[in-house]
């Protein structure tokens, strides 16, 4: 009996010791990266590029594994992160869709329930109209909406991440227009082509992908695109609105800071690798690393701007 007791105690002691050791040698098991959208999309693409870079260059002693958990606009995957232990072995990559879902109170969590690790990329939307549209600038578009409000519609996703900047644009322009819920950017492009809607916010890769089919009016970012230096920003045209999707990595709140630092440094190194650079260039996104204190402030500021227009997004505007 006594020997058994000793054996048990030793085991317990050893387990404690090994877990104490783990702080120094994190990670000791594969890290699970949740992608809350389906395979083949932009979130999945970047996550896999980062994963590949980390695993191929041995940036971590343990591999990263990507698990897709699509559904409910990213909420299914985000909830899985929420339910996981804050031990640094489960992380999530998502963009502003997370803010949108909590700002309109579709979900019962807020960004406060998570710890931002690092922001990797930025993709600022642009205002697109069909190639044969009469508008060549935001001003022309807005003044025409003012005169003929009945003929103008925007293709978007009600309650989605780009609906919020759309409302900000409406506020900046002082006019309102109806939003037709069609879904993701490819569906918006389809809707524009069919002539069912007049304007849509598209992600930068569509500038090249849809060349000849659409006309860009303004970049909704702080700077012009590197690959399209002639396209002015909305700010230059007098509308101070930005609509950027930033792909960020998150851990559950309460994850030890040193683990977050390890993850942030690793992901940053991966993001600076050639493979990821190539991927970002191809998908029209730019590398924009933000981490630490700066990132927390940015998240707070951005979330506040979402909450500000949430009421309008939720549906005070009708036709």
């Amino acid at each position: 009996m006594k020997t058994l007791m000793t054996a048990l105690l030793t085991t317990v002691a050893m387990t404690t010791a090994s877990s104490g050791l783990a702080t120094e040698s994190y990670p000791t098991q594969p890290i699970r990266l949740i992608v809350p959208f389906g395979a083949g999309g932009g979130t999945d693409g970047l996550a896999r590029a980062i994963q590949l870079s980390i695993n191929n260059n041995n940036l971590l002693p343990e591999p990263i594994v990507v698990a897709n958990a699509p559904g409910a606009g990213g909420a299914v995957g985000t909830r899985q992160l929420l339910a996981s232990d804050p031990d640094g072995y489960t992380i999530l990559q998502i963009h502003q869709e997370m803010f949108a879902a909590s700002a309109i109170e579709r979900v019962d969590y807020t960004p406060k329930d998570f710890e931002p690790i690092i922001q990797v990329s930025e993709a600022c939307m642009f205002v697109a109209v069909k190639e044969d549209s009469p508008y060549t600038s935001l001003d022309e578009m807005i003044s025409d909406i003012d005169e003929n409000p009945a003929d103008f519609r925007q293709a978007d996703d009600i309650g989605g991440a780009t609906h919020f900047p759309s409302v900000q644009l409406m506020n900046a322009a002082g006019v309102q227009w109806p939003i037709v819920p069609v879904g993701a950017t490819s569906a918006r492009f389809t809707s524009l082509q069919g002539g069912f809607t007049q304007m849509a916010l598209l992600s930068p890769l569509w500038l090249e992908r849809a060349a000849g089919k659409i006309r860009p009016l303004a970049v909704l970012g702080n700077e012009r695109y590197d690959f399209a230096p002639d396209l002015p920003t909305a700010k230059e045209q007098g509308y101070d609105v930005t609509a950027c999707l930033n792909r960020r990595y998150w851990a559950p709140a309460g994850t030890p800071q040193e683990y977050i630092d390890v993850l942030a440094d690793t992901i940053e190194a991966a993001a600076n690798s050639e493979e990821v650079q190539k991927y970002l260039a191809e998908s029209g996104e730019v590398l924009k690393i933000v981490k630490g204190e700066e990132l927390s402030d940015l998240v707070d500021k951005e979330y506040a701007s979402f909450v500000e227009v949430a009421e309008t997004v939720k549906g005070s505007l009708s036709n």
């Binding site: 009600i158 109806p178 549906g315 505007l317 009708s318």
Partner: peptide, 9 residues
């Protein structure tokens, strides 16, 4: 019955 009044259409 508890769902909100239509706003968009």
């Amino acid at each position: 019955r508890g769902l909100p009044e239509p706003t968009y259409e």
